[in-house]
Simulated scan of single mutants.
Amino acid sequence: MSIDYSKLQVLLVDDQMLVRSLLIQTLKSMGFHPELIAQASDGTAALRLLQVRPVDLVICDIEMRPMNGLELLKELRCGHTLNAPNLPFLFLSGHSGPVNVVQAIQLHADDFIVKPPTPAEVEKAIRLTMSRPRPLVDPFAYYTAQIDDSGFVGRRFAQAPLESDPAQELELWDVPADALLAKDLFSLSGHLLLPAGSRITAGQLNVLREHHDRYGVSHIAVVPEETSEQ
């Protein structure tokens, strides 16, 4: 399969500028267009970028603060960005211990490149990742991923609304992005998708709408906006 790297938008996430610079040189030698290579120094900055800019590939370090690479991948897989939950995602890290590898696999990372990588290793990982068909990712399946010592990585749910809070039942197509759920959201088969108190993202709404036969969600109970802002 021939890949036109010049048209791909890639995001490099690493807290070391030298590492990002070396990666940029490797990507340019592969044919990536410099103007389509974005950079972020940590997971938080990368998440903000992914929420407003579509990309085709993420190459990310693991050990960063305040948000590390595993947390960033979980946010992506949960549908909390503008990009597709199954976006190609490569880890680049000097921390290749079994715990990190297992956690990366749980979040369906595409590959794990050990620092310092050679240009040939980077090119091979990118070529294999961009050549394989993208798997169908369920963004509602990652919230309970056990991927660190505390048992939870990524955002935690807000406190559920009290039973006395008003609930507004909206048709799926009328639910606004970032609406606060007044009740637990279940699939047609009875699987808990999101608990009450969480906010449903635009990406999650798109998945529910595009795959209605799979989830069977037609109405969602939300807290009216004026109430949720109090």
Rank of each mutant, 00 (worst) to 15 (best):
N100H: 05
E225D: 14
A141T: 08
V122Y: 04
I200T: 01
V222Q: 02
E35A: 09
D111I: 07
A158I: 10
A38G: 11
D42Y: 06
R48Q: 13
F32P: 02
D138T: 04
L36H: 13
V19G: 03
V114Q: 00
L27Y: 05
A196W: 01
E121V: 06
A141L: 05
I147F: 06
V58W: 05
L82I: 12
P133I: 05
I24P: 06
L27N: 04
L47D: 10
S189C: 11
L136R: 14
D61M: 01
A196D: 07
G43D: 04
P116L: 02
A84I: 11
G197F: 07
D111Y: 09
L47E: 09
R132C: 08
V207F: 02
L23H: 12
H212W: 14
A160T: 10
T26E: 12
A202N: 07
L181S: 02
D184V: 07
L128H: 14
Y5R: 08
V13N: 01
Q204S: 03
R156F: 06
T118I: 07
L128E: 15
Q16A: 10
N68V: 06
I37M: 07
A141F: 00
C78P: 09
Y5T: 05
V99F: 00
C60S: 13
S6G: 08
P133H: 05
D4L: 08
C60P: 04
L107T: 11
I59W: 03
L12E: 08
F140W: 03
L57S: 10
A179N: 02
V114E: 00
I24Y: 12
R134Y: 08
E163D: 13
L47Y: 10
H211G: 08
T118F: 07
L72R: 09
E121D: 12
V19N: 05
N206M: 12
L181A: 00
Q16L: 11
Y5G: 01
S21C: 13
I126K: 02
L188P: 06
A221H: 09
D184S: 04
L70N: 06
Q51W: 09
Q103R: 13
Q230D: 13
K74G: 11
G216P: 09
V101H: 00
P85S: 08
R65N: 09
L57C: 10
E225W: 09
R214I: 11
V137T: 14
K7T: 15
D15K: 03
L36E: 10
M130L: 15
H191M: 15
P139S: 05
P166G: 01
A221I: 01
I113C: 05
S218A: 14
G151K: 08
H95R: 02
L181N: 03
Q51D: 10
F186S: 04
H80M: 12
Y142P: 06
K74R: 15
H108K: 15
V10S: 02
E226Y: 14
H211R: 15
D149Q: 13
Q51I: 11
G216A: 09
A145K: 05
C60G: 03
S96A: 07
E171A: 14
A202L: 03
L208Q: 08
Q39W: 11
Q39I: 12
M64L: 05
F91G: 03
L181C: 01
A196N: 04
A45W: 01
V153W: 12
R155L: 09
V55N: 04
E123I: 06
F112Y: 05
D148A: 03
L172R: 12
G154P: 07
E123W: 06
H95G: 00
F140T: 03
V52K: 15
A46E: 01
V10G: 01
Q106L: 12
